[in-house]
Simulated scan of single mutants.
Amino acid sequence: MTHLPPPPADLLRDAALFLDFDGTLVELQERPEAVRVDARLAALVAELSQALDGRVAIISGRPVEGIRALFGDPPFAISGSHGLEVAWPDGRQTRAERPAALDIIVDRMTVFATATHGVLVEEKPLGAALHYRAAPQAEAEAHALATRLATDSGLHLQTGKMMIEVRVAGADKGTALATLMQAPAMAGHRPVFLGDDDTDEPAMAAAAALGGAGVLIGEPRPTAAAWRLAGVADTLSWLHAATESLRR
């Protein structure tokens, strides 16, 4: 579906809420490290977690430690690296093994980025990404390089908004949502997932398969989501309204 209505304010009643981060809770930036979580956003997520009795988690392509640092060691569950890492509120954490091939991939991406103004390399625990938001003319070369590196290493090629990533295979945001839904606090509730990118589509589909729904953030496009919000500002406004609805 491409043309979707906005979600109702009471959508989160008896739900488990799963949130993408970049492009959903915060605006995309040219440099991933430029993103900040302000006091209002931190308070909003804390209020949602309280109103939902802890049934809130973030599912991101960023590493778990990156999300944790931005929120100041939060009490909610986090899945990072596209489902390859999961950190639970009680301190438990699981993470896939980092292959040695990633060191070579980072080196080759760095050579390319150094020679291509505006391209950035983001090194992650289980992947490496080329960001070309500041150099859109480099898209074809970035994709060609990442494709070769993924093929040579046997790792997974992950597309995204103005970025291309080579990462460990075996998980995605859909498997992350399914794993988090097994937690006692989440089990038996309807999953609702909010996300903006094509990397979020597996989680949209997983939420629907488990009796819940996805909410697309951004411009209309083909999606497994059932609802849509226009952007980050509308998302934050809706989350505030949904929090108030839960308190009634």
Rank of each mutant, 00 (worst) to 15 (best):
H3E: 14
L4N: 07
P8C: 09
P8Y: 08
A9W: 00
A9F: 01
D10R: 10
L11F: 11
R13S: 08
A15L: 10
A16N: 00
L17I: 00
L17M: 02
F18A: 10
D20A: 13
F21N: 04
G23V: 09
L25Y: 11
L25M: 12
E27I: 05
L28H: 10
Q29H: 12
E30Q: 12
E30V: 03
E30L: 13
P32S: 05
V35D: 02
R36W: 10
R36P: 01
D38S: 10
D38F: 10
R40V: 05
R40G: 12
A43M: 05
V45E: 02
V45L: 14
L48D: 03
S49L: 07
A51R: 15
G54M: 08
R55G: 04
R55C: 06
I59H: 04
G61S: 02
R62A: 02
R62P: 00
E65T: 12
E65M: 12
G66L: 01
G66E: 05
L70T: 13
F71M: 12
G72E: 11
I78S: 02
G83Q: 08
G83K: 11
A87D: 06
A87F: 02
W88A: 09
D90C: 13
D90S: 13
G91S: 12
G91W: 09
Q93M: 14
A96S: 14
P99E: 00
P99N: 03
A101V: 11
L102G: 04
L102M: 08
L102T: 07
D103V: 09
I105R: 00
I105V: 13
V106L: 10
D107W: 00
M109W: 01
M109E: 01
A113V: 01
A113M: 05
T116D: 05
T116W: 02
L120N: 02
E122F: 00
L126D: 07
G127W: 06
G127Q: 07
L130A: 06
R133G: 11
A135I: 10
P136Q: 07
P136R: 12
Q137K: 14
A138P: 07
E139I: 11
E141V: 00
R148Y: 00
L149H: 02
A150T: 04
D152K: 02
S153Q: 05
G154V: 13
T159M: 07
I164E: 00
E165G: 06
V166A: 06
R167G: 04
V168G: 03
D172G: 09
G174F: 03
G174P: 04
G174D: 03
T175S: 15
A176Q: 07
A183F: 00
P184Q: 05
P184I: 03
G188E: 02
R190E: 08
R190K: 15
R190C: 05
V192F: 10
V192G: 06
L194M: 15
P202I: 09
P202A: 10
A203D: 08
M204Y: 13
A206Q: 12
A208Q: 14
A209D: 14
L216S: 09
E219L: 13
P220C: 07
R221I: 12
P222E: 15
T223E: 12
A225C: 11
A226T: 07
W227D: 08
R228I: 05
L229D: 08
L229P: 06
L229N: 07
G231Q: 03
D234R: 06
L236M: 08
W238F: 14
L239V: 00
H240T: 12
T243L: 01
T243Q: 14
E244V: 15
R248E: 11
